[in-house]
Write a protein that binds this DNA or RNA. Structure first.
Lengths: 349, 349
DNA sequence: TTTGGCACTCGAAGGATAAGAGTGCTAATT
DNA sequence: AATTAGCACTCTTATCCTTCGAGTGCCAAA
């Protein structure tokens, strides 16, 4: 084993130890716990070198070493060995997710709950981005005078709807006429290409007075725009309070404060995804300072995607302390992702 | 002023001081801050008496006094003076709530956000209980072979729907036949009186084979049952970390742990409401140990109802430290409640 | 019933000290 | 050149002690 190889082993050992004990690790305990065929003095030299390379650091002059952000990065990129889930864990997760009844929303919520429960960290599940998916059907149904339901069927069988207000004296027949023309002209169009103008041109041929038409069109338009609204299911925030990493109240406060703006978190995930543009099934891992969200400096953020049909996907991930068992968490996310894909397929088929 | 009156004044002063300073209040500072026309020794006697009555207590032998749960109770029931909101607060709250677009769900979420924001505590908004409301319309619409949408209109104009799976070879005409018979026989029935049997009898006369019928009926039944699902919007949990009352990490952990089970909190609110059965517009206040939820021993829980139409109502409230400005919080809830009632009326009219 | 006075209590804050884990460096060894 | 033993040095943590001050309870006088 070359000297360089050993240094990397040392880094790996430091990360492993620090993750489990949450104590800066010193040369002596390193020797005790792992069987390095060298003395502690040698490890001290290696550790000094690793520090020079910026991979580990000491909290204080006379303390052991902890991994730096770059150290974790090196660990995750090159040193980590992936392990797999125990059967017990699989059963636990499956149980929670399979109890979902009927709606995608339940499924996503339960997946998030299962993920935060098994990891002990914060889980994140976002509804799929529908902006790029296309409109397969659109019907406007009269509920009662003045009130209608816009029902949209999107690619991959996703159904969205919204109650809208319409002019009181619009008749069901008139509404049907509008609905049919709109559907005819929008059919197959991607959601994000639909504008108010598109809608207006689609009903040019009808004989319904503009005054009535306009309100219906506008409401239909808002319904379409709202169809791709992003919902975020964050779960397990309170888990972070159990971690020694956040035993300082101010850290915990900053963290939970930021996490309470789920829109911010979602926005950040979308940014990350843009950078990795669309390579699905891969894991995006952000460590410590790499995360551009206030209060998450001591966290790592792991995300990946789940699928709804072929072209539509949503995000799923975990926010935990930098000091986490990356390998384990990734396999946990992976299994939840698998169950989620599966559940959605069953629901939407 | 009688001696007894003064004792109550002293209690009031202690609560007021303790709420603002979060320090046990002693006889001397009491004299300084309020103009009692007596000496500190006299107040000491009064305080000893109040303690004998169980209304105040000392954390330690040589500390000042803090209100006991019963002390707060006395304060809330008899001593508190209600004040009103500042214009700035009204505008702040109105702004947040008025920006809601289109859906009741947004409105509830925003109301909850506004409430947690202005109080600085945890807010709670629950969707209305629909179990008792009745079914005015029910339509089952074919979306594509194998998939249909069940649309229900309930009292007070509330619309609910759910995508369900149906047998692949069921024709739109058959579906319409089922839909019409079901609607005819269920019309006006309260949701909680509808059973699978009710549904089955309603379609006895149709000529559709049972094998097809049963799945549709079952799915419709689950759609109806799911219509009155209770959603809970808890917001501002992280605010609690800012309070000195929860600067002990373990307290904060217990509190947020319990609050993360929003189902538990919702269940508790329903219990409270049953006890107060249905007297609307009143405030239900639980203080400290009166709250039967783990981790909320140092909290107070104030709830009331908002209205959707005449007969349907939901709950809204705040969870904060016992040591809160009750009067202020109540007026804040009251204003949010008012804005919420108003917003719903506008949406549903 | 109220008041001044006084002894007493107890927590919070501030040092001082000792223990312990860990480091860096030097000189010797392989 | 790489490794090792040894040792002086550093820095944190825990513990104990002291002091300080706010507050109490109670007694005797008004």
């Amino acid at each position: 084993m070359s000297v360089n190889d050993r240094k990397m082993k040392v880094l790996q050992a430091i990360v492993d130890d620090y993750v489990t004990t949450n104590e800066p690790v010193g040369s002596k305990s390193l020797i005790e716990r792992h069987n390095f065929p060298v003395s502690s003095a040698t490890l001290r030299n290696d550790m000094a070198e690793l520090e020079r390379m910026g991979l580990i650091e000491k909290p204080h002059t006379s303390a052991g070493r902890i991994p730096s952000d770059r150290g974790y990065r090196e660990y995750v990129d090159s040193l980590m060995t992936l392990d797999s889930l125990s059967d017990a864990e699989r059963i636990e997760i499956s149980g929670r997710i399979d109890e979902s009844v009927g709606e995608v929303r339940d499924l996503l919520k339960n997946a998030s709950a299962a993920l935060s429960e098994t990891t002990g960290y914060v889980s994140l599940v976002m509804t799929p981005k529908l902006a790029g998916s296309s409109l397969l059907q659109l019907k406007i149904l009269m509920i009662e005078p003045g009130k209608a339901l816009v029902v949209m069927v999107l690619s991959a069988g996703v159904v969205k709807d919204k109650v809208v207000r319409i002019p009181n004296f619009l008749t069901p027949d008139q509404l049907k006429e509008i609905s049919d023309s709109v559907e005819k002209s929008l059919n197959g169009k991607p959601l994000d290409e639909i504008t108010l103008v598109t809608l207006a041109t689609s009903v040019k041929e009808t004989k319904i007075p503009d005054s009535l038409l306009n309100q219906v069109l506008y409401e239909t338009y808002t319904a379409i725009k709202q169809a791709d609204r992003l919902d975020v299911y964050l779960d397990g925030e309170h888990n972070m309070l159990k971690l020694p990493d956040f035993s300082e109240l101010s850290r915990a406060r900053d963290l939970l404060g930021t996490l309470s703006h789920d829109g911010m978190v979602a926005g950040y995930v979308n940014e990350i995804e843009k950078e990795n543009h669309g390579s699905s099934d891969t894991y995006m891992i952000r460590i410590g300072q790499e995360i551009a969200l206030e209060g998450l400096e001591d966290c790592s953020f792991i995300t990946t995607t789940y699928k709804v049909g072929d072209s539509i996907s949503g995000n799923i991930g975990v926010i935990g302390p930098k000091r986490m068992d990356y390998s384990k968490v990734i396999s946990q996310i992976d299994f939840v992702r698998y169950k989620l894909n599966d559940g959605i397929k069953k629901l939407n088929s």
